[in-house]
Simulated scan of single mutants.
Amino acid sequence: MSSITFAGPVTATRLRITPRGRRVLAALVALPVAGAIAFAALSGGSALASGEHTAGDGFATVTVQPGDTLWSIAGEVAPDADPRDVVAEISKLNMVDGGVIEVGQHLAIPARYGATGR
């Protein structure tokens, strides 16, 4: 037969952080934050530096009427242009996702097309 003996109550040890440990912990926490700030600072100007046309290059606006689609608006404002190209430019300029537009919405139209049909 074996006897089981218990050592008695176990005392919990407290975690002590030395001043050096605090500096290391602070550096580990600050490193991702500093990396995120550096990334944002370095990539923030890429849109302007890309050389792509922006809304500041000049544009006209049209107001979406009941029954309008991007395709119909493209056909009206640029009857001689390929509607696919015009729809793509209007979508990009207005950040229209999936071609969904709403009645009363104001859409920017690139100045080279103007809003001649409206």
Rank of each mutant, 00 (worst) to 15 (best):
T5K: 14
F6C: 13
P9N: 14
V10C: 14
R16H: 13
I17S: 07
I17Y: 06
I17P: 00
P19Y: 03
G21F: 02
R22V: 03
V24K: 09
L25A: 14
L25M: 06
L25R: 12
L25P: 00
A26Y: 01
L28A: 15
V29N: 11
A30W: 10
P32Y: 05
V33C: 05
A36E: 13
I37Y: 15
A40E: 05
A40P: 03
G44P: 02
G45D: 10
G45T: 10
A47C: 01
A47R: 15
L48M: 07
L48E: 05
S50Q: 06
E52C: 06
A55C: 05
G56C: 09
G58P: 01
G58N: 11
F59Y: 11
T61P: 02
V64E: 08
V64L: 00
Q65G: 03
Q65C: 03
P66K: 12
P66F: 05
P66N: 08
T69D: 01
L70A: 08
I73R: 14
A78N: 00
P79D: 10
P79W: 03
D80K: 10
D82V: 10
D82Q: 08
P83W: 04
P83E: 04
R84Q: 06
D85Y: 07
V86R: 11
V87Y: 07
V87T: 08
V87H: 07
A88V: 01
A88K: 10
E89S: 12
I90F: 08
S91A: 15
M95E: 15
G99D: 03
G99F: 04
G99T: 10
V100K: 13
I101F: 11
E102Y: 11
V103E: 15
G104C: 02
Q105N: 09
H106I: 04
I109H: 07
P110W: 13
P110L: 11
A111S: 05
A111D: 07
A111Q: 08
R112I: 01
A115H: 11
T116V: 07
G117K: 12
